[in-house]
Design a protein around this nucleic acid. Structure first.
Length: 476
DNA sequence: ATGTGC
């Protein structure tokens, strides 16, 4: 089909536009440098940006972040907001299978020199204390009633049960709990999968990493966030495991059937969606919130197990810098053409980035903005950014490096043993789940994180606070 | 991402 070629117009620094044409309700906007545009053979990411622009009720534009790549229905690295008061839809594909997958950063009360003598011991202990791998759990074995509490109350319930401190809630997005969660709406299969996985990493690109602050670009922000150059940090990247996956599967199926009743047609079945304020839409948002709460509690429990290891081996405590999701739909108020509107903002592989002065920020971050946590790959840097007042795309930015090689292709090209050696030479020690998993996550399978962050900053989506480098990696 | 694919 000739119309499958996407027209892309250069439209300012780090910015391309996909002009509106037949069926599109808004433009597509791709924040990237030419070198970061998807070029993997068969990569349909830009076509997906165009498809998303056809969703009922979409406002602004169909946005793509510099780490954009091909995903289920929506591209990963996509942001789309719909007007809930004007028939705007919600789509599970706009959130992704790993609901509320996200990143949490902890600052250790020690500098990197403190690890010199016992890094291997520390990594062995972290590897031992961190359940991981497909289908594997869990730090906390739950009963059914406890699971319901986790789904309703998220990290707040974990902290109430003694797994954490008040600051863990103060520094978590939504203070640790997304309101409006309804565990009753979850299928028995979703609940069953959630029972045995709370406090586990999963697999793929999920990790727990010991890092050091390598450079600080914004001293004032770093101080307020709670870290300084040379300090040791722990970054945890994981999500809602099998439970979130099952919630997505269940609701894609339901919406696929319900769509016709609302007169909704989408260019790709993977974009299955219903009005956000319809019974099916509200049911999805409530189930999604429950999965998001599970993800936050999951990261909270992994935090507690890492804390135990750090106290025992290093004698240092870990303080939460922030916890932020990059796979979520949220109901948010925004200005649209001069009017305050209630939007359903889908961020899939994209991170909320609130600027200084935003009312949703905790008091001690009000003057510097929300920490935006961007994981690199296991051989490369990670970043802490913050939102900026210009913040287009409903205050959103990138979420990571973004894949450029498929898992299959990476596994074919990379030998795990050799990769492990290269990482060791670079001073990075790895505790891997499987050799295959390690190869699939090799740095060469991803875009250059430094370029992605530079493009995000160049597009005025965020501003750099600090760069972190890996020391030890626990891989799923 | 995922008890790794209809």
């Amino acid at each position: 089909m000739s119309d499958s070629v996407v027209e892309l117009v250069e439209d300012g620094p780090c910015r391309f536009r996909i002009p509106r044409r037949a069926g599109m309700r808004v433009d597509g906007v791709v924040f990237a440098t030419p070198g970061l545009l998807p070029e993997m053979a068969g990569d349909q990411a830009l076509k997906q940006v165009e498809n998303v622009a056809k969703l009922p009720g979409i406002v602004g534009a169909s946005y793509a972040m510099p780490d954009v790549h091909w995903g289920y229905g929506f591209p990963i690295g996509g942001v789309a907001a719909t007007d809930t008061e004007a028939g705007g839809v919600v789509s599970p594909g706009g959130v992704g299978f790993d609901i509320s997958c996200g990143v949490r950063l902890l600052a250790a009360r020690c500098d990197r020199e403190a690890l010199d003598d016992h890094l291997e011991l520390l990594m062995d202990a972290l590897g031992h204390a961190t359940p991981r791998g497909a289908g594997k759990g869990a730090v906390w074995h739950l009963g059914r009633s406890e699971l319901r509490e986790v789904l309703a109350e998220g990290a707040r319930y974990a902290v109430e049960q003694g797994h954490g401190v008040q600051r863990d809630l103060d520094r978590c997005e939504d203070e640790g709990v997304l309101e409006g969660a309804a565990a009753e709406g979850l299928s028995d299969r979703a609940l069953q999968r959630g029972l045995g996985q709370l406090g586990s990493l999963g697999s793929g690109n999920h990790f727990l990493e010991v890092q050091a602050v390598d450079a600080v670009y914004d001293e004032r922000a770093a101080r307020a966030m709670g870290f300084a150059e040379g300090q040791v940090c722990v970054m945890i990247h994981c999500g809602s495991r099998g439970l979130g996956h099952q919630v997505c599967t269940d609701h894609v199926r339901k919406m696929d059937r319900a769509m016709a009743r609302y007169g909704i047609e989408v260019p790709d079945r993977q974009l299955a969606s219903v009005p956000a304020d319809s019974p099916e839409g509200e049911e999805y948002l409530a189930a999604m919130a429950a999965a998001a709460n599970y993800a936050r509690a999951n990261r909270q429990l992994l935090t507690e197990s890492a804390r135990g290891v750090f106290r025992r081996i290093v004698g240092a405590d870990l303080d939460l810098v922030y916890d932020i999701s990059h796979n979520l739909a949220k109901i948010e108020d925004h200005q649209v053409n001069g009017d305050r509107r209630r939007l359903c903002v889908h961020r899939k592989g994209a991170t909320r980035a609130l600027p200084a002065g935003h009312p949703d920020l905790p008091e001690d971050l009000a003057e510097v903005g929300q920490p935006v946590l961007i994981p690199g790959t296991m051989g490369t840097a990670s970043y802490v950014l913050t939102g900026v007042p210009e913040g287009e795309a409903w205050y959103s930015t990138c979420h990571g490096a973004g894949r450029v090689r498929s898992r299959h292709q990476a596994a074919r090209e990379v030998r795990a043993g050799r990769l492990r050696g290269e990482l060791a030479e670079a001073g990075i020690t790895v505790r891997a789940g499987t050799a295959r998993g390690l190869a699939e996550e090799a740095p060469l399978a991803y875009k250059d994180i430094d370029e992605v962050v530079a493009a995000s900053e160049g597009a005025k989506l965020c501003s750099k606070v600090a760069r972190l480098v890996p020391i030890g990696v626990v891989k799923g």
